[in-house]
Design a protein around this nucleic acid. Structure first.
Lengths: 118, 118
DNA sequence: CATTGCAGTATCCTTTTAGTAACTGGTTAC
DNA sequence: GTAACCAGTTACTAAAAGGATACTGCAATG
């Protein structure tokens, strides 16, 4: 964020906050990473694998779906199943997550790494 | 995050989460942007300008300070004052905030922009 | 020596977020 | 028909985050 005036700064803040809220919460990142690693997943699978309560899972998935980060697909199987998976669009989040990962690692050095040496 | 194995993925997730937690919360971003825009600020100034309760402000500033994102400087003035300001290190957060801003703006298009056209 | 301004804490309260557990409604399998 | 899965919801509880307000301790001012 280079040299912003008042207005630019406020709208930049809003955009950052939007992004922040979308990936905030205890489960958002975990869910996205689960889909990323293991591919599509059914509702019950997620409940069992992650030990998340169905109530919370339902809410989180709805929010992710609203933001077009995951898709919800109903399958006509014997007992009906619903598959969730990340969207191609979700991959664009990489441009945010990658820097966050790098900064997080750098920061760990900055904080812990220098704890003793100073 | 390109093609991570199980372990890499988990540690990447941790780093992302670390970063996320540091800038999460109702006031962190607002505080950093305030320092960025207006420079150093005293405790009472922040309380008044932002309408934040001293209790919460105190906590937020402590957390930011622990993460070396802001400095706390005691001044020997008539009534003693304390100045807070962002550190040079804090500027490295730009590498995270800039992509977050860009993605946030893109996302606003993706979500709102296409609400009508589809 | 009461009043004001400062930084911050202590106490209590409200709101938000997350979790538990029981339940609905539908389908198949016995 | 009843037991067993599925995807979720409902109603309640617990924990975390945030807020309001009064207060402490210190120094200068009047």
């Amino acid at each position: 964020m280079e040299h912003l005036n008042e207005k630019e700064c406020k709208s930049a803040g809003m955009a950052v906050r939007d992004t922040l809220e979308i990936i905030s919460g205890k489960w958002k990142l975990i869910l996205l990473l689960t889909f990323y690693k293991k591919g599509k997943r059914r509702f019950r699978e997620l409940v069992k694998e992650l030990n998340i309560s169905p109530r919370v899972l339902s809410k989180e998935l709805q929010e992710l779906e609203m933001n077009k980060l995951v898709t919800r697909t109903v399958r006509n199987t014997r007992p009906m199943t619903v598959e969730y998976d990340i969207t191609p669009y979700c991959r664009t989040l990489g441009s945010v997550l990658q820097p966050m990962k790098e900064w997080g690692e750098l920061h760990r050095q900055e904080i812990i790494g220098k704890k003793n040496s100073e």
